[in-house]
Amino acid sequence: MTNEEQRQEYRLETQLVVFLEVGDEHGNEPVIVVSRSLDISANGLRIITDRELTPGSILRSCIQNQDATQQFTLITEVKWLQAWQNPNEYLVGLALFESEDSNIVEWKEFIARECGVE
């Protein structure tokens, strides 16, 4: 079964700016990795990034629209990673966690509005 076949919800093809707070195994200060979304849904998104991320990693993420008028802080898990079109470019599947310290409710409302469901 492919990733496409496993999807159970509508995905919007839209480019949002995605900032990921990525730590390392040595306990150094996290770095912010800037990427872009390929598509989004209420419970996850696919992004394109220039950094190889580790599946299973839990990352704090900030997602904003192109003109920075909307911003969401979310907790994400790296579900999978694969090489993308150019060297050092990766397609990454992120799942969203329900978390009190996030904007998950606002995110789901945003997705509903974008899908025309309110």
Rank of each mutant, 00 (worst) to 15 (best):
A83H: 04
S61K: 09
T76I: 04
I75T: 11
E77Y: 07
T73V: 14
I47T: 02
P55A: 11
T73M: 11
R51V: 14
R60Q: 08
G56I: 12
R51N: 03
L94T: 08
T76Q: 06
L74I: 03
T76K: 00
D50V: 02
G93N: 03
P55T: 05
I58Q: 08
Q64K: 10
K79V: 15
L91D: 07
T54D: 07
D50L: 05
T49G: 05
Q70N: 07
L91S: 13
N86Q: 15
Q82N: 07
T69K: 07
W84A: 07
F72R: 02
D67C: 10
R60M: 14
V92F: 04
Q66L: 15
L53W: 01
D50K: 06
E77V: 09
D50P: 02
Q64M: 14
E89F: 00
L94G: 03
C62G: 09
L53G: 08
V92H: 05
P87C: 01
N86A: 11
L53C: 12
I47R: 02
V78I: 09
W80K: 01
L91R: 11
I58P: 00
I47V: 13
L59V: 10
E77P: 01
V78S: 01
Q82Y: 01
R51K: 11
L74M: 06
V92C: 07
N88E: 08
W80L: 08
A68D: 13
R60K: 15
P87A: 13
L94S: 02
W80Q: 05
R60L: 15
